[in-house]
Simulated scan of single mutants.
Amino acid sequence: MAPSAARWNHVWVGTETGILKGVNLQRKQASNFTAAGQPRREEAVSALCWGAGGETQILVGCADRKVRHFNTEEGTFQGQRHCPGGEGSFRGLAQADGTLITCVDSGILRVWRDDDKEASSDPLLELRVGPGVCRMRQDPARPHIVATGGKENALKVWDLQGSEEPVFRAKNVRNDWLDLRVPIWDQDIQFLPGSQKLITCTGYHQVRVYDPASPQRRPVLETTYGEYPLTAMTLTPGDNSVIVGNTHGQLAEIDFRQGIPGRMSPKSLKRSTRYLQKTQRQMNFGHPWRQLLRGNYLIRIRPKELSKPNREKRSSRSPLAPENPVPIL
């Protein structure tokens, strides 16, 4: 694919071989982009996010602890930043005010000067957010605010311009009906626009809403979906619900406006997707969704401006699915 055609891709997928795949849903084509010119497993992609300039730049976090900058307009990698420290792979990336924010498995969150290419340079800020991190998420409305959560690492909200203590620390839910402690495993986090509320999905198939502005630190809304770990979540365009996906390739829309107080209503999305291919990758939805979806599934959605699907019989194997996917987040 010509570099200028990269801007028309609707989905961006990172792979275990270091390839960044751009998928054009209209043409039913997938194109490969690599920083080194050939696949390298030591450059396996572990995190993706949009750059601060919008959808013209993607930050690609790799296993060699380098964050590479990919220009979607030109279809090329343009620079990189080495971000050492901590153990494990990247669990989240973000940009804010000329800085790069990284967080790894072991709970080391660092803020780097993004225009500094020296590998030996020290970070501007380092926070220890707790081990077992599964996700770090930036608040789009307040770029200096991030949230973290993971396995036995409850949801926390951090102000990178404030103190080294979290501005909000979630409290675990009450013991179950056998009076046993409920384990913690936050897999993904989203900020709800227009408020301070956050939504999490867990490895124990729960979806929870937290409100730091309320007196309580426990969830203000909670529901469950299915019986398998939830690994992916993104807000819908109306911001009134989230779409969650689990390890068995099932999707559901959780509507905050439905159900009894304190509960939410899950709704199956079987009719909303043309196909669902389990890929266990991280990916990025471009226009018109403009959402970053972290998780274990490649979901092909028909946006409104795309042409209607061909009704002819198709093969059960999609030509767009990445090969040999493995879990990275």
Rank of each mutant, 00 (worst) to 15 (best):
D179V: 10
D179I: 11
V182W: 09
V182S: 07
P183V: 03
I184R: 04
D186N: 15
D186R: 01
I189S: 08
Q190V: 14
F191R: 00
P193K: 03
P193H: 13
S195A: 15
S195F: 08
Q196A: 15
K197S: 15
T200H: 05
T200M: 08
G203Q: 12
Y204T: 05
H205V: 01
Q206P: 02
Q206I: 04
V207W: 03
R208G: 01
V209C: 11
Y210T: 04
D211M: 05
A213W: 04
S214L: 11
P215D: 15
V220P: 03
T223M: 05
T224R: 10
T224A: 12
E227Y: 12
P229I: 09
A232R: 05
A232N: 13
P237A: 12
P237F: 05
D239K: 00
S241Q: 00
I243R: 00
V244N: 04
V244D: 09
G245N: 06
T247R: 03
G249E: 07
G249I: 03
Q250F: 05
L251Y: 10
E253C: 13
D255H: 05
R257L: 03
Q258I: 01
G259M: 03
I260S: 12
I260T: 13
I260D: 09
P261F: 08
S265I: 03
P266K: 00
K267T: 09
R271F: 00
R271H: 01
